[in-house]
Design a protein around this nucleic acid. Structure first.
Length: 875
DNA sequence: GCGATGCA
DNA sequence: TGCATCGC
C-alpha cells in the first residue's frame, strides 16, 4: 500500500499558466474556456500519476495582504487580470466542486501562504505533501516531507523538486531560495531586491554566506562592486526577503478529513464538461466511469495507458530480433542522455503488437539488440526525434541506418508556427491522448503513440502536398545534420585566449573612462542604470522611450554621440562586451573537452519560414559586418593541419528566387546578364543609366531590395536608410513601377494567402497566416508582409537543404574525407584535405547551383583559406 | 522580417 | 520578462 499523499495546488498560478499556454478556446455561445480546459487536463494527469489521498486547491483572495502593509508597492506593476480569464474562475470552481476537491481561500491571504500553512500542517501529521504550482518561490517549502511539482514550458510537462534537486539546480538549500530572491528581487511581484544584483550574483553570495543577514554582516569582505550596493541597500534587501517569505501561519481551521478525496462526481462532471464542450474529456469520463455513451458505442477513446513487457532474457531478445527483421519496421523511443547514454529503449514491432521495454543500461545484450536493429538496412525505424536517437546511438558508437519517420519533424512541416512539438504535445493535439511523464509506463506509452502518429501525420503530409518535401528533403536532412553536429568545428584555443585577454583589457579601459566621464560607477550593462546616468544625471535629450523607461539602443546612442564624449565610449563598450561575453567567453565554455571541437545543435523544427537555426553556440550569427567582430572567425580552423576551410555561398539567392517566382522580365534580365543587382535596381528606381549610379543611390537601392526580401514596411525602410517615411514610400512605389511583375507577384501571394489561409514555397512548404484576415490594420499588414517574405526565405531554405542532402550523399558515396561542417542560411562550410580540393570545389558548386532549376541561374561564390576569417574568393 | 544569446 | 545585438 502506498503512503498517504497530500496534493496541494496553487490555483491562481496554474490558471494563469493554462490561460497563456492554451490557445483561445470558446464554446459555441462564446464562453471562453481555455484556462479551465488546460487546468482540468493538467489536474487529471496529476491525479492519475500521483493518486493522492488528500487534495486542496488554494486561491488568492482580497487585494491587501500583509505584504502591502509592509511595502505599499507590492505587486504594483502587475497587470489586472484580463476579463477573459476572470470569467473563468467561477467555471473552474464549479469543475473543482464536481471533482469533489476542496478549495480554499482566505480574505487578505495569498494562495502561497495557504499552501505553506497546509504543507506544514500535513508535515506535523507525518503526511507527505506535493505542491503543484508554476511559481518558483514555492521551492522554499521543499523539505523531507514536502516536494514541489513545477510546471515547465507549456503545461503538460512538469519537474519535481525534492531537496536534492533544489541543491542540484541552485546550489542552496530550499529556505535559502528566499535569500536569493531578497537579493535579486522579482519584477513580476515588484519586489525590489538590491539594484544591480541579478540571479548569478545572488546565487554566488548566498552560496558563500548562507543568508542575506550574513552577506550584510560580512559586506566589507566583498569585492567593491558588490560591497557598496549591499551596504547602501541593506534595508531594501531585508524588506525584500520579508516580502518573498511564505507565511506558514495562516489562520485556517484544518482537519485532514476535509481534504480527503473521495473521487469525482462523474455524472455532474459529465454535465459541466458537456456544457463547456470539452468533448475529449467527456469521452474520457464515459470510458473511465463505465457510463453509457449516449450516442453510439464506436466513439471509444484510446487510452494513454500502454501495455508493455519488460524484457531481459537473452532468449526473448533474440526472438524480438528476428521478429523485427521479419516485420521490417519498428517504432523506437530511447530514454537517456547524450552524456550518460541510453537508459531504456522502448520498441514496438507492429501497431497493435506488444511493446517491449529493454533495460539497455543494465544489459549489454539489450543494447546490442537495439543497435543491431538500428543499423540493419532491412528494418525501418519510426521515432519521435531522429537526430536525438542518432546522438544517443553515437554515444555507444552505433548508428541509425534506416530512419523511416520522424514524428516531430512531420508535425513541424504540417504547422511550422507551432512551438510545442514534443511527442506529448503531438499526442494531445492529434490523438487526444494525455501521456504520462517519467518512468517505464511513459516510455512505453510514447512508442505506442508513434504508430498512430505516423499513420495520421503521413496522411496529412500527402493531403497537404508536402510528402515529397518530407521524404526527399527534410527526413534525409536529419542524418546530414546529425553528422555535421557530431563532426563539429575545430577551434584554436590559444587564439581564443589571446582574444579574451586583449578584449578584456580594452573593456577595462573603457569602463574606467566611462566612470570618469559619468562621475560615478554604475552598471553599464543595465539599460535602466545607463538611462538614469545619461538622461537624468547628464541631461542628454531623450530620443526614444521603451515601455519601461528610456531607450538606449544603438540608434539612440548614435544620435546622441555629438552631445557628449561618453556616448561613443558606451557604444564601443557595448560592442566589445557583446563580443567578449557571447563570442569569446561563450565559445570557450562550449569546447567539448573530448573532441576539442565545438558541436553546435542545429534545429530543424523551430523557424516559421523553414530555415534551420543553431544553438549552443549559435554558429549562424558569428560576427562578420564589423572588422573587430569579424576577427572571431580566426579561431575556427580546419580539423587537421594542412586542411582548408572552404565556404560556398549562394549569391543573392533571395532576389533570384523573387525573379523566378514573380517572372518579372526586368529582374530576370538583370540576373541573366549577370549585372550587379543593387546598381541595376538603383538605375531603375532613380531612373538613371547604370553608369551614373552613385554609391549613395546604390546603397539606398540595396536597402530597398533588402526590404522587399525581408518584408519590411515603408516605416522600416525609412528607419534603415534614415529618410522620411514619405520618401521611403516613394522609393517603394518607384520600384514597383519598374518591376511591375514583382508587384503582381506580391498582390497574387497576398490574395492567395487570404483565400487559402497559408502561403507556400517552391517545394510546397507551408506557413499558415491567420493574421492576414485580422481586423487590426497593423496585424494584417504584418500578415501580408509574411505572405511575401516566407515564400522567398523559405524557398531559399528549400534549395540549400536540397543541396546539403545531395552533397552529403555524394561525399559519402565517393568515400571522401571532406566534411560539411556548418550551414549559415545561404552558405555551406567545409573542412577539406588538400588532395580533395579540386574535386570538392567542382562538386560543391555543381550541386549547389543545380539544386533546383530556376528561370534565372543560381550562382555560388567559393572562398578558401586556413581559417574562417582568412578565406579568399576562388574561381 | 526571423532566431539565439547574455544580462539585469 | 524586456532589452540589446549578432547573423541572414
Amino acid at each position: 500500500m502506498s503512503p498517504e499523499k497530500f496534493l496541494i495546488i496553487d490555483g491562481n498560478s496554474l490558471v494563469h499558466r493554462a490561460f497563456h499556454a492554451i490557445p483561445p478556446l470558446s464554446t459555441s455561445d462564446g464562453t471562453v474556456t481555455n484556462a479551465v480546459y488546460g487546468f482540468t487536463n493538467m489536474l487529471f494527469k496529476v491525479l492519475r500519476e500521483l493518486e493522492p489521498t488528500y487534495i486542496a486547491v488554494a486561491f488568492d483572495k482580497g487585494k491587501i495582504t500583509f505584504r502591502h502593509a509592509t511595502y505599499t508597492d507590492y505587486k504594483a506593476k502587475r497587470k489586472a487580470t484580463p476579463p477573459e480569464l476572470r470569467s473563468q474562475f467561477p467555471l473552474l470552481k464549479e469543475v473543482l466542486h464536481h471533482m469533489r476537491i476542496c478549495t480554499l481561500e482566505l480574505e487578505n491571504f495569498e494562495a502561497d501562504d495557504i499552501i505553506g500553512t497546509l504543507a506544514g500542517f500535513a508535515d506535523g501529521k507525518g503526511i507527505e505533501s506535493i505542491v503543484l504550482t508554476g511559481d518558483r518561490d514555492a521551492l522554499q517549502l521543499v523539505s523531507p516531507r514536502v516536494r514541489v511539482l513545477l510546471t515547465k514550458k507549456g503545461i503538460t510537462e512538469m519537474e519535481e523538486y525534492d531537496e536534492g534537486r533544489v541543491w542540484d539546480r541552485y546550489g542552496v538549500s530550499p529556505p535559502q531560495i528566499i535569500d536569493i530572491k531578497g537579493l535579486m528581487g522579482d519584477t513580476s511581484d515588484n519586489i525590489p531586491g538590491v539594484p544591480g544584483i541579478g540571479e548569478k550574483t545572488a546565487l554566488k553570495l548566498i552560496q558563500e554566506y548562507g543568508t542575506i543577514e550574513n552577506v550584510i554582516a560580512e559586506a566589507n569582505k566583498l569585492p567593491t562592486r558588490w560591497r557598496n550596493k549591499i551596504i547602501e541597500h541593506r534595508d531594501l534587501a531585508q524588506l525584500s526577503k520579508k516580502l518573498a517569505t511564505i507565511d506558514r501561519r495562516v489562520p485556517l481551521n484544518m482537519d485532514m478529513e476535509q481534504f480527503k478525496w473521495p473521487g469525482p462526481d462523474y455524472p455532474a462532471l459529465l454535465d459541466i464538461f458537456s456544457k463547456l464542450e470539452f468533448k475529449t474529456l467527456v469521452h474520457n469520463i464515459i470510458n473511465k466511469a463505465g457510463l453509457e455513451d449516449n450516442k453510439n458505442g464506436q466513439d471509444e477513446l484510446k487510452t494513454y495507458c500502454a501495455k508493455y513487457r519488460r524484457v531481459s532474457s537473452e532468449e526473448k531478445l533474440s526472438q524480438i530480433r528476428s521478429n523485427c527483421i521479419a516485420s521490417g519496421m519498428v517504432a523506437l523511443d530511447l530514454s537517456g542522455t547524450r552524456e550518460a547514454g541510453i537508459n531504456y529503449a522502448a520498441l514496438s514491432i507492429s501497431p497493435v503488437g506488444t511493446t517491449y521495454l529493454l533495460p539497455v543500461k543494465e544489459q549489454v545484450a539489450a543494447l546490442d539488440l537495439v543497435a543491431d536493429i538500428c543499423s540493419d538496412p532491412r528494418v525501418k525505424v519510426i521515432c519521435a526525434d531522429g537526430k536525438e536517437v542518432l546522438w544517443l546511438l553515437h554515444r555507444h558508437n552505433r548508428t541509425l541506418r534506416n530512419l523511416d519517420f520522424d514524428a516531430q519533424l512531420a508535425a513541424y512541416l504540417l504547422n511550422p508556427s507551432m512551438s510545442q512539438n514534443s511527442l506529448a504535445d503531438l499526442a494531445l493535439q492529434y490523438l487526444q491522448l494525455v501521456l504520462p511523464t517519467g518512468g517505464e509506463a511513459a516510455t512505453a506509452a510514447r512508442v505506442d503513440t508513434l504508430w498512430q502518429l505516423k499513420q495520421l501525420l503521413q496522411q496529412k503530409l500527402v493531403e497537404t502536398g508536402m510528402d515529397r518535401l518530407y521524404y526527399e528533403v527534410e527526413l534525409p536532412l536529419v542524418t546530414v545534420l546529425a553528422d555535421m553536429e557530431m563532426e563539429g568545428v575545430a577551434v584554436d584555443p590559444q587564439i581564443l585566449c589571446n582574444m579574451a585577454e586583449e578584449t578584456g583589457r580594452q573593456i577595462e579601459g573603457l569602463v574606467l573612462e566611462i566612470y570618469r566621464l559619468a562621475g560615478e560607477e554604475f552598471n553599464i550593462n543595465s539599460p535602466k542604470q545607463l538611462g538614469d546616468i545619461l538622461f537624468n544625471k547628464m541631461g542628454l535629450p531623450v530620443i526614444k522611450k521603451t515601455k519601461t523607461g528610456f531607450s538606449t539602443d544603438a540608434s539612440v546612442l548614435e544620435e546622441l554621440a555629438p552631445n557628449h564624449a561618453i556616448v561613443d565610449k558606451i557604444l564601443a563598450y557595448r560592442q566589445l562586451a557583446k563580443l567578449k561575453s557571447t563570442y569569446i567567453d561563450g565559445l570557450f565554455g562550449l569546447i567539448n573537452p573530448t573532441s576539442g571541437r565545438i558541436h553546435t545543435t542545429f534545429h530543424q523544427d523551430v523557424t516559421a519560414t523553414g530555415r534551420l537555426s543553431s544553438s549552443n553556440p549559435n554558429l549562424q550569427n558569428i560576427p562578420i559586418r564589423l572588422e573587430e567582430g569579424r576577427r572571431i572567425r580566426k579561431v575556427f580552423v580546419p580539423h587537421r593541419p594542412g586542411n582548408l576551410i572552404l565556404t560556398a555561398d549562394y549569391s543573392q539567392i533571395e532576389l533570384r528566387i523573387l525573379a523566378h517566382m514573380s517572372g518579372d522580365a526586368n529582374l530576370i534580365g538583370a540576373f541573366k546578364k549577370g549585372q550587379d543587382i543593387h546598381t541595376r535596381t538603383a538605375a531603375e528606381v532613380f531612373n538613371v543609366p547604370m553608369e551614373q549610379v552613385t554609391p549613395e543611390m546604390r546603397s539606398r537601392a540595396k536597402a530597398v531590395n533588402f526590404g522587399i526580401v525581408y518584408g519590411i514596411s515603408d516605416y522600416g525602410l525609412s528607419r534603415d536608410i534614415k529618410v522620411p517615411r514619405a520618401e521611403a514610400g516613394k522609393y517603394i512605389r518607384s520600384y514597383f513601377e519598374r518591376y511591375s511583375g514583382v508587384k503582381e507577384f506580391i498582390d497574387r501571394k497576398i490574395s492567395e494567402a487570404r483565400e487559402k489561409g497559408y502561403t507556400t514555397t517552391l517545394l510546397n512548404r507551408r506557413r499558415y497566416l491567420p493574421d492576414i484576415v485580422s481586423r487590426n490594420r497593423v496585424t494584417r499588414a504584418f500578415g501580408e508582409r509574411t505572405a511575401i517574405n516566407t515564400p522567398i526565405q523559405g524557398s531559399a531554405a528549400d534549395i540549400i537543404k536540397l543541396a546539403m542532402v545531395r552533397i552529403h550523399g555524394e561525399l559519402k558515396r565517393r568515400h571522401m574525407a571532406t566534411k560539411m561542417i556548418l550551414q549559415v542560411h545561404d552558405e555551406l562550410i567545409f573542412d577539406v584535405p588538400p588532395d580533395e580540393l579540386t574535386e570538392v570545389k567542382k562538386l560543391v558548386r555543381e550541386y549547389m547551383e543545380n539544386a533546383l532549376h530556376l528561370d534565372v541561374p543560381l550562382v555560388v561564390d567559393l572562398k578558401l583559406g586556413p581559417n574562417w576569417y582568412d578565406v579568399r574568393k576562388v574561381p
